[in-house]
């Protein structure tokens, strides 16, 4: 087994085997359950409402996945540094790239767990409609780069900032900023700056793509550029995280 595979298994195992990881999954399940339970007794829902519910559920899963990945990313660097676990890890023979890929792999496993968790919820609210397949496809295709970009960005912040708390706050604020087009809605798109931000923002790109595929029934191909942007952001975040793991004058990586 390669070091990166071992680290991925270790990091992913933590989310499935450790109380902390299970607590995160339980919290995510509680959020999805609350959303699903709100629909019970709504006999007047049309398919449009249903598609929006499925889209909302898929978007919620992406948001929860991104938050979990951000927390894991900060913990993988700043948290491990504060626990004293980063120093011995960086002192091993595992190359920095393998360490980073392994940690990203762990986040991918956590995201897979999140998708597996969200799938029954999507089935429960969407199987009587016609959007379940698109929802699952969109969740995997668009959610994966967005979630991993959040995780890699959080790792970069965790490595650069000295305090895990500061890195966590910075990561969550960044995520909130990325999600702001969804909160501000059409008003943001009234200015060129807002439209530009919306266009390059991977998070709103993924949610807009889910909306287009699930609610509007558009094809996957028509969402290709949004997928390209999300993957490009993932690569930028990965490069930032890799750069943050290189030793530099004036900065101590591990202590």
């Amino acid at each position: 087994m390669s070091p990166s595979a071992a680290i991925a298994r270790y990091e992913g195992g933590e989310i499935l085997a450790s109380p902390r990881g299970l607590a995160w999954l339980l919290a995510a399940a509680a959020v999805l359950s609350s959303f699903a339970l709100l629909l019970i007794g709504s006999t007047e829902l049309g398919l449009l409402d249903n598609a929006q519910v499925v889209c909302g559920m898929a978007g919620l899963a992406v948001a929860l996945g991104a938050v979990i990945a951000a927390v894991m990313g900060v913990d993988a660097m700043a948290g491990e540094r504060e626990r004293g676990a980063l120093l011995p890890l960086l002192a091993t023979a595992a190359p920095r790239r393998s360490i980073l890929l392994g940690k990203l792999g762990g986040q991918a496993l956590a995201w897979a767990a999140m998708v597996a968790l969200a799938a029954p919820y999507l089935w429960a609210v969407g199987s009587t409609g016609q959007n379940l397949g698109m929802a699952l496809l969109g969740l995997v295709l668009f959610g994966t780069p967005v979630v991993l970009a959040a995780g890699a960005g959080a790792m970069a912040l965790g490595a650069l900032l000295h305090s895990a708390r500061a890195a966590l706050v910075a990561s969550l604020i960044t995520l909130l900023l990325a999600a702001s087009p969804l909160l501000l809605g059409p008003s943001l798109r009234q200015s060129a700056l807002g439209r530009g931000f919306d266009a390059v923002n991977p998070f709103s790109g993924a949610i807009n793509a889910l909306d287009a595929m699930i609610v509007d029934g558009e094809s996957l191909l028509s969402q290709g550029w949004k997928l390209t942007f999300a993957v490009a952001w993932l690569m930028v975040a990965y490069a930032a995280a890799l750069g943050s793991l290189q030793p530099r004058a004036g900065r101590d990586l591990a202590t």
């Binding site: 087994m1 070091p3 680290i7 004293g84 676990a85």
Partner: peptide, 29 residues
């Protein structure tokens, strides 16, 4: 070629001692 025992052990709580050592051996190649 270097073994390190840092001031804070930084062990993983959810693994057994044997699994942990095997994991670390993989990291060391």
């Amino acid at each position: 070629r270097v073994g390190l025992v840092p001031e804070r052990d930084g062990l993983t709580d959810w693994m057994t001692a044997a699994d942990y050592l095997q994991y670390w051996a993989v990291l060391q190649g």
